[in-house]
């Protein structure tokens, strides 16, 4: 019996399977190389072009970086160790250099951060609800009519295509300054993003249960509610949690245009004081976002882990 590792043709012809495979493989690598090199050259060309447009040059960077440092220097608190934990004096004031002085408005910040979280929570709940309904309309396998699907998909594209901050700007003008404008802005964007993801999940769901419900005389709503929803529920929950993380950050940002929450305060302290209050607010925002990210990640992994065990 011939060893399978020898490189001689088994049947004496030059159509040896190994050399045939090798030549085929070399051809494939050569073909792929051409594509890769072309793409690489194009990428570098575009990179240089955009650097040129934005005047992203080393000397401007070198000039700008110290100024960033300078700004952070000016908003750093000047804490002094000897009075760090001092409480209020007789006049009810914290001595300069103490933590209390730095975080004089601590409870106001906490109230605003709590408002931001509630904005994100409200927006996530409403956005997920709308996204679930729109996903069934947008998914190609469940849409009641072709034109409905196309309309729903275009609508979702519009919702997620426009940044929250733009919606917030318009809505602050329409419904006034405050959290309502922010919540609506985030709802629109979250609906667009979640609706797209959810409709893809629906498109991957099995249609057999839908046939089953159709065969018992169920209408479209019942087909969705019983045939699809139980299949996609774990994914939806995971997506909603992930969107909540994003919405917390988003609701901090929309505050900049007056749409409520901690963002409004950050914008206020930056434009009016630019002193240690900026870092005070920033640190709280970063802490909150990190905590919520970690928590939601835990929850999501627990959820996905539970699913994958089945």
């Amino acid at each position: 019996m011939a060893s399978i590792t020898t490189n001689t043709p088994a049947n004496g012809s030059d159509k040896d399977p190994v050399s045939l495979f090798e030549s085929h493989r070399r051809q494939m690598i050569r073909d792929r190389m051409v594509v890769n090199v072309t793409l690489g050259v194009l990428f570098i060309a575009f990179l240089l072009w955009s650097a040129w447009i934005s005047r992203f040059t080393p000397d401007r960077l070198a000039a700008g970086l110290p100024r960033i440092m300078e700004y952070f220097g000016s908003v750093m608190p000047s804490l002094q160790w000897d009075v760090l934990f001092e409480s209020r004096d007789e006049a009810g004031r914290f001595p300069p250099g103490s933590l209390g002085f730095w975080y004089n408005d601590f409870w106001k910040y906490i109230r605003l951060i709590w408002e931001t979280i509630r904005m994100a929570l409200t927006a996530t709940l409403i956005g997920t609800g709308l996204a679930v309904i729109l996903a069934f309309l947008a998914a190609r396998n469940t849409t009641p009519a072709h034109w409905v699907g196309v309309a729903a998909r275009r609508f979702l594209e519009f919702c997620r295509g426009v940044p929250e901050i733009l919606f917030a700007l318009v809505l602050v003008f329409a419904v006034g300054i405050g959290p309502l404008a922010g919540v609506i802005a985030i709802v629109i964007h979250a609906t667009g993003a979640l609706g797209k993801l959810s409709s893809e999940v629906v498109e991957n769901a099995s249609m057999r249960p839908v046939d089953g419900i159709k065969a018992v005389g169920g209408n479209w709503f019942e087909q969705m509610r019983y045939g699809i929803l139980p299949q996609v529920m774990p994914n939806y929950t995971s997506y909603a949690l992930w969107r909540f993380e994003i919405n917390v950050r988003a609701s901090a940002v929309v505050g900049f245009v007056g749409a409520g929450g901690i963002g409004a305060e950050l914008s206020h302290v930056i434009s009016f004081y630019s002193d240690d209050r900026v870092t005070a607010v920033l640190i709280l925002i970063v802490l909150t976002v990190t905590m919520i990210d970690l928590l939601s990640e835990r929850l999501r992994h627990a959820l996905i882990g539970k699913e994958s065990l089945k």
């Binding site: 057999r208 249960p209 046939d211 089953g212 419900i213 065969a215 018992v216 005389g217 169920g218 019942e222 019983y226 045939g227 139980p230 299949q231 529920m233």
Partner: peptide, 25 residues
């Protein structure tokens, strides 16, 4: 009523809910 080759039940619901779904009409 119809019975299918691949059963066409809703796997993630419990058995009795699947059976009761026959009453949805």
């Amino acid at each position: 009523a119809m019975v299918f080759q691949q059963f066409n039940l809703v796997g993630r619901l419990n058995v009795i809910t699947n059976v009761m779904s026959g009453r949805l009409f």
